[in-house]
Every structure is written in structure tokens, then in C-alpha cells.
Design a protein around this nucleic acid. Sequence first.
DNA 1: TCGAAAAGGTGACAAATATCATATATATTT
DNA 2: AAATATATATGATATTTGTCACCTTTTCGA
Lengths: 248, 248
Amino acid sequence: MIFVTFSIILHKSKLKSMSSESRCENCIIRQFNSLRAMSKEELKQVSDSKTSKSYKRGEAIFEEGEKLNGVFCVRDGVSKLSKLSSNGKDQIVKLATKGEVMGQRCVIAEETSNLSAVAVNDMELCFIPKEVIINTLHKNPDFTFEVLRLMAHDLREADDVIVNISQKTVKQRIAEAFLYLKSNYGEDADGYLVLTLSREDIANVVGTATESCIRIISEFKKKGLLKSSGKKLGILDEKKLRELAEGF
Amino acid sequence: MIFVTFSIILHKSKLKSMSSESRCENCIIRQFNSLRAMSKEELKQVSDSKTSKSYKRGEAIFEEGEKLNGVFCVRDGVSKLSKLSSNGKDQIVKLATKGEVMGQRCVIAEETSNLSAVAVNDMELCFIPKEVIINTLHKNPDFTFEVLRLMAHDLREADDVIVNISQKTVKQRIAEAFLYLKSNYGEDADGYLVLTLSREDIANVVGTATESCIRIISEFKKKGLLKSSGKKLGILDEKKLRELAEGF
DNA sequence: TCGAAAAGGTGACAAATATCATATATATTT
DNA sequence: AAATATATATGATATTTGTCACCTTTTCGA
């Protein structure tokens, strides 16, 4: 009997301490996405209905064609959102990072996902059931507007990607990809990019064959634009890389 | 006295008949875009503040980098939305047709336009000042949600474009472009596409050189997939064209 | 309706990129 | 630590696509 009581207390205190970290109301990540426009009340609803999930590197989060019953809020790690083309190659359309919400489009448009999501490194996600999202979308115009604002931004970025892919050479796009990786994920103390992507992933981001990608990275290393150490890659000459990307 | 009364009646009836055509409340076009989620009151506001504009083929509606003070609702005609790449070529990102609203993103994100819009054929547009739109966005969740839904759809389409451009050959993309033109704009009684684009425009849609585009269209004509009469082009063998686009 | 300008068309060639084959290095499993 | 799988690397070659030059046809304004 004593044991039982003790166990309950332990359980409760564990729950409490978890909650102050894991409650949406206290989550800092939220500041970077549309959830910041939610009211205290709405956030409580989200928090009560959400579940946390961990994914190992390489694990699938959802698949193309799958029906999503909610959205995923990225707490940690990076996910690649890609689409399979008819010739069997994956095209990475977007990298989703800490703070971003995945799967919104499916929930909003009530369609199956047009993309699949795979963890690039180990990830922590919160899964929020769609009912809460849709409910808030219909009740809180500020939230809806915030989602809209972010989606407008995504669409603008998509336009840029279209223009880049169709008008720039593979070399330019790869140079650009490295500048993107640096400015979005930064570099460590030794000047290596924090986010390490495989050559294949980089190829799938810029839309080229893996071999072509490897070849160009080798060339960049020979020319002193990039350095490598193990799997890690680092930028040595950002200025030249930028000039290359712009087409000089 | 009798004459005056009569004239007033005539005038009123004339106004009435004009308004029933040009008032947003009665506009059928609206059914195809986000404005259908507006209330009677909101539509009146829009109607009172909107201005109608005509554009001739080839005329610019707005330019890349321009700040838009409102949105354009397409009543008739087609507009190409394009972006200039650093190498000096235009990439057409979208064709906007009857019922679609252009310039929403700029108004929502309060940014300058990332695209420029040019009339492909003669156009009739309604210009709606941004104040009315923003006002409604903040007050009417249904409207905001509707805009969001349509933007989610646009984003999905943009993803598809990215995958197509980066993974399919020019020939496949041109085949696809013709299928798109047929399914979206239809064909006339003689089997010619209703929307006639120049070879250069088609090249800018699929992201290739004008010469390559011309060459492939010639090839398609020789192979009996397309026919032409003057500027008009028509699809002769949709099945083969579809197979080609899919990569068989 | 004439003449310039724009659009459409084609050949020759160069450049970019993909593909295939094969080798080596690195990571992972047992 | 050996065995296996996976990622990276590189050469040879084929294919695709772009570029330049030039020509013909159509369009459109004076």
C-alpha cells in the first residue's frame, strides 16, 4: 500500500516536471511558427491533445499519398520533404527545421500528402491532431492569418526554386546549396557545416545525378572553395562560391 | 414633369442594369475564388472600392519588385506570372485565368511582388485595394481560410512544377504543357487549343531555350502528335503525348 | 500595301549533364 | 575483426540541351 502511494507520487512529480518542459504554453519553438498566434486557451487544447515522437536518422515520418491526421511540429532535428518523380528519383522540395510545421497543407486542403518526410538526423517532433488545428483555424483569424502569412512565404520560396532549377547550371545550384546550408544551419567551431547531407541528398535538393554532384563537390574542393573532414563539409571561400552561384 | 420622371426612371433602370453586371455581389467569377467566402456586406465594400481595368495583349499589369496596393481579380483573359532570372531569361511560374486573384501574396506578406504579370491576351481585371482585403482577412475567418485553402493548392502545384522541371526532359515537359493547355483552356470546334501561346512563352513555361522548344514542337508535328494552323496549335494524339510525358 | 520587326524554323556545333562501369573508402553488422 | 553494405570517387561515353548563325514566314504599323 505504501509502495503504491509512493509510486503514484513519483509518477505525478515526473509528469509535472515533464509538463513544464513539454507544455506548448512554455515551448520556445512555438515562437517561430504559426502557433504563436494562438491564445492561452487554444495552446492548452493543443498541449493536451498532442503527442511527442522521436525519429532516428533515416526513419520515415510520413509517406507520399498518406492521409495525415494532424501536423508535425519540429522540436529538434531536420527532415527532408521530397517527392518521387516518375523516373524513380526523389526530389527534395524543402528541408524542415526546428520550429517549422509539417503537413499543414494536407490538413488545410483535406488532401493526402503530396510529399514524404524522412528524418535527416535524429528528430523530436510533436504531433498535433488535425481537429484542434482546424478548429482554431475557423475560430481564430489571427492564427489563420499567421498560417497564411507563412504559407505565402513558402510559396515565394517555391517560385525562386523553380526559377533557379530551370535557369541555373548544376554547378551554380550546388554552390547555392552550400551557401544555403551555411546561412540556415551555420557552421561549427572548425568551420564545418552543422547540417551534414549526403552527396545523394544534395543531388536530390538541386535536382541532378548523384555522380554529377560528387564530381562538382570534388572540383570545388580542388579549387579551394570547400574542405572536407570525414563526412563533414566546410566552406573555405564563401565569396567565390557566391560569385559562382550568381553566374560570374 | 412627366418627361423628367420618365428620364429618372430610365436612368435608375440603367444604373440598376449596369450594377447587376459589375457589382461583386452579382459577379459569377467570384464563385471560383476566395471572394465567395465574403459576406454580402463585405462584398459591397469590395464593390464600392474596386476599379475595373482593361489590358491589351502584351501589356504589363505589374512588375517584379513593385509594391502592390491591392489585388487583381481576373474577369477575362489570361496573364502570365513570371520572374526574371540572373541570366536574363523569364521563367513563367503560373498562368492566371478567369476567376483567379493575382497579387495576394504581396498584400498578405506586405512584400514587394516577386513576380511580374503580363497579359497573354486582352484582359479585364478588377483591382481591389488592399485595405479591404486585409480588413476582411482579419475579421472573417471563413474568408481567410478560403484564401489559405487556395494558397495551399498553389503550393502543391509549385511542388509538382519543381519535380517536373528537375526530373523530366524538355520533351516530356513540352508534351505535358500541351496536355495542360488542353485540360485547362480547352479546344475549339476544329480541335485547336483555345489558348495560343508563342513558342517563346511555351519555352519560358517549361524552362528551356526558344529554339529547343521550336525544334521539339516541329518534331511533334512531324510525328503526328500536334497539328498547326496559323498561330494555332492542336493536339492530334493525346494518348501518345501523355505516354511521352510520363516517360514511356 | 509596303517594309520593318517579330516570330518561327533549321543546321552546325559546343557545352552541360546523365549514364554506365568500376574502384576505393567508410560505415555497419555480425 | 571480418564481412557486408553503403557512400564516395572517377573515367569513358552517350545524350541532351544550349548557342550562334542564318533563313523564311507572319504580323503589324505607317
